[in-house]
Amino acid sequence: MSEERCEVAVVGLGAMGAATLYQLAKAGVKAVGIDRFAPPHDQGSSHGDTRITRLAVGEGAAYVPLVRRSHQIWRELEAQSGEALFEQCGVLVMSSSATTTSHHGAADFTANTIELGRTYGIAHEVLTSSQIRERFPQFGPIRDGAVGYFEPEGGFVRPERCIATQLEAAQALGATLITGATVSALESLGGGVRVKAGERTLVADKVIVCAGMWSANLLGEPFSALLKVCRQTLYWFKLAEPTIFPEVSPSFILAHGPGEADICYGFPPIPGEGSMKIATEQYVALNSIDALDRTVSAAEVDEMYRKQVAGNIAGVTSELVKARVCTYTVTPDFGFIIDDHPTLDNVTVVSACSGHGFKHSAAIGEAVAQRCVSGASQIDLSAFSLSRFA
């Protein structure tokens, strides 16, 4: 069987892969994108209708330039395609507990978000509990003493549309898509990489791996020791009082207790749907990705409503409209890894995104493409080096 050749092969076409393939094609690179499914799909981490985006990222300062640039790219893509990708409805980050809530390694997630907003000159308001209740009646149940951070430039992006739009643009610019093909092996050659993808074999000058939950198995050490895959559940509950929600309601993150489990996030009701998407984040590692249960039990639905929704958000019933399962692939410090593979020459790794990657994906794709083409990116990626785990 003959080997196909390309300049760059991108493995995995979720959030990061689609963005990277688009930016490579935009730069004139002969690029091939490979995915085991047909993206956008619901088998990985980049689905669920909506994903929060905000400039003051509580996970750390290194992410701020990425999300700023991503917002610009979403708007550029909207202008090119006519698709609605980015809904700038604002983001409200709240702490309604007497004690601080830790999240993604930050001891006080809301305070850290406020500090980043101040440090980077991000337009925002710090709200009291009474101000939150007055402006956003759906959060009427929050406790006195609550603190809120409202960022008007935040909101949500539509992941499936973003992926599809970038892949369509990449193809229009000359990129090739190979779908329904699992990459089973990468082999470094003199000056290139052999890629086994289903029944096909490609030889690429460079390979960029954006394989999410499948990265550890494909890449081996040290990734198999560093990365853990965690099952996540997304819920859409029926609204009881749609009129309680202002015409423009924000996406939100609500910290309502002292532990990692005492935090949820959600989105404004999408017009015409009559439901509200709410979710939490879980960090229990799967023993095997083959053991991932994609069903959501009645007990899970009941626990979610009792612990996260009831007493925290008004106007939402316990009736489930739909539920979905996705995964996070998580590093020990909840940060990203964007770096060269330590033993496979000409292979760049763009994973894991630790559950907060989609908002940054457009800019990461651009930065990784720049790094691939010229050896350096306009946005500094050094904070995501593999060496920090040494």
Rank of each mutant, 00 (worst) to 15 (best):
A314T: 08
D345H: 11
T295A: 10
K322H: 13
T348V: 14
V349R: 00
F336T: 05
I338K: 01
L320Y: 05
S297L: 05
H341N: 10
M276F: 01
S297E: 03
V347E: 04
A285I: 07
A285M: 07
I337H: 02
F336Y: 15
D333N: 08
T295C: 02
S275P: 00
V330W: 00
A279T: 15
K307S: 14
A285Q: 07
V284T: 15
G335T: 14
L292I: 14
T348R: 15
V347H: 03
D333V: 09
E319V: 15
I313V: 15
T327L: 04
D290H: 14
I313L: 10
Y328D: 03
T329W: 01
T327P: 07
A285E: 05
S318D: 14
L344I: 13
A352V: 06
T331I: 00
N346P: 10
L344P: 08
E281M: 11
A291D: 15
A310Q: 14
A299L: 10
D339G: 08
N312P: 05
Y283S: 08
S318T: 11
T280E: 12
I337F: 01
P332D: 05
D293P: 08
D293C: 10
T317Q: 03
D333T: 10
E300Y: 03
K322W: 07
C353F: 14
A352E: 00
S318H: 12
P342V: 09
I313E: 01
E300N: 11
S318E: 11
T348S: 12
R324S: 13
M276A: 10
N346I: 09
E300P: 07
T280G: 12
V349W: 02
R306F: 06
T343H: 13
A314R: 06
P332N: 04
E303Q: 14
A310L: 13
L344F: 07
T343S: 14
R294Y: 12
T317V: 04
T280K: 09
G335S: 14
S354K: 02
H341K: 09
V284K: 13
C326Y: 07
S351N: 15
C326T: 10
T331D: 11
F336M: 05
V301P: 02
A352N: 09
V330Y: 00
S275N: 14
A314M: 08
T331Q: 07
E319P: 04
